[in-house]
Amino acid sequence: MNVSAPLKASDFKSDLKPVWCPGCGDYHVLLSLTKALADLERKPEEVAVISGIGCSSRIPAYLKCYGFHGVHGRSLPLGTGLKVARPDMTVIVAGGDGDGFSIGGNHFLHACRRNIDLTYIVMDNRVYGMTKGQPSPTTEPDWDSALSPGGTGLNPFHPLVIALASGANFVARAFSGDIRGTTKLISDAVNHPGFSFIQILSPCVTFRPEQKEWKSAIHAPPVEATDDPARAARRIMTDDGFNVGVLYRGDRRPYKIGDGVEHKTVADLEQEFQI
């Protein structure tokens, strides 16, 4: 590779072949993410992609960046630790709806609230795929499955409004099949200071084949992104769930990371114990 040539999307892809089902929306997300990283002119070694457990959480190994495929539900704490310890790295946390909103739900609230400069991408297919199709927090109440015959009867969790209420600084919805739009959203999210959250509707062709219809339901929001949380909340709460684009772009104060300067030595710290 010519070192001076700008990197292309394909330079961010690893040689590992995904295990995702053909037709899965996550392939689109992988493409969009590599395109965004190329657009952002990051080097692969300057980016870390951190995930938990689930189909979409396999994404780090399919990239040529640094990656960490951790345990179920804990990707945000892993990413938080890395970003605070290494603010020079671009940290992208990625995973699915079960990983992020069920087992990892508490971390989601506090990551939004902490507002550390990282990007959280949730590939939402409203189902647990790795365990063969159980309802997730975003699944419709009447979706029938072996674990919840006749449906859960529970209202779906609304990640966008929860992100907004918890303090996220950038809230967006994307559709995996809209590669150009998703690429732009990811690159805007990475550039925006503080915690950026993108819910990417990403169909599961195996357990939710009806989600193929999402393609025709998707549309751009009728108005521009707002920095007013109340307006954003109203829009998110009242739209049809298929608006894609930036829904909130705020200027909430990002988490303050130490300056990394050695103001004192360890010997200085020891003084307090001397008699």
Binding site: I50, V71, T80
Partner: peptide, 28 residues
């Protein structure tokens, strides 16, 4: 903070252990 490092208060111990794993993965 005084010696150029950081401490983050986590939301629970599930988080605190993963935060230190993430930071140490970063070489710290």
């Amino acid at each position: 903070t005084a010696i150029g490092g950081n401490l983050v208060q986590a939301e629970d111990e599930l988080s605190s252990i993963n935060m230190i794993i993430g930071a140490s993965y970063g070489g710290i």
